[in-house]
């Protein structure tokens, strides 16, 4: 049945909310090949109908094939577009470095896109004001300059802006400047304690 592959592709993506399934290169090539094949068939029939001047009902066939092509293209476009949309959100949620298991689910083009997007975003944030603004912090209005945090994982060494180095161990507690640890909280390294 026509369009079945595209449906499988979209279903696979729709089923996983908030995370990306592995890039299905096999199915994508499959669909592209189907598009090409249908296009060729159409062209042959169209050529024939001009040359031999046969009945116009071959046009109906061409219409059906055209609809199938449109559908296939839509599935491919939606697949890639929605993956990129998810990837863009990931840049804001995970930061500029993605966990290895997420990265292994991406295609090479997507990895390239991600690093380009990261670079653009960094350039933009640097260009605001005089010394740039980090847009990924202060997502909630800050109430105090310092906050207490608890470390959730063995993170290792962490350099503060004033030059001191902290050793972050699991379950250790720290009293840190809010703007410096917010990113780590977002990444799940720290837990904010009130």
């Amino acid at each position: 049945m026509y369009g079945e592959n595209g449906y499988t592709l979209i279903k696979e993506l729709a089923r996983s909310e908030d995370n990306l399934p592995p890039y299905n290169a096999e199915l994508v090539t499959h669909i592209s090949r189907e598009i090409k094949k249908i296009y060729d068939e159409n062209q042959i029939d169209a050529q024939q109908s001009i040359n031999e001047n046969i009945e116009a009902s071959i046009l109906n066939t061409i219409r059906v094939r055209n609809a199938v092509t449109k559908r296939n293209v839509r599935c491919l476009m939606a697949y890639h577009f929605n993956r990129l949309k998810c990837l863009r959100t990931m840049r804001w949620e995970f930061g500029s470095i993605l966990p290895a298991d997420i990265k292994s689910n991406l295609s090479t083009a997507e990895i390239e896109w991600f690093s380009k997007y990261s670079r653009l975003l960094a350039n933009y944030m640097r260009s605001i004001g005089e010394d740039g603004v980090n847009l990924s912090i202060d997502l909630k209005p800050p109430k105090a300059l310092y906050i207490e945090v608890q470390c959730l994982v063995d993170y290792g060494k962490f350099d503060l802006n004033d030059g001191t180095t902290l050793l972050l161990k699991k379950d250790s507690r720290h009293y840190l400047p809010r703007n410096e640890c917010e990113e780590l909280i977002r990444q799940g390294v720290f837990k904010h304690i009130i």
Partner: peptide
Amino acid sequence: SNTTIEAANMVINHKKRK
């Protein structure tokens, strides 16, 4: 109204899955 800063949604889900 004293909101805590929380880990990002995707990060939490990712950890659970792991």
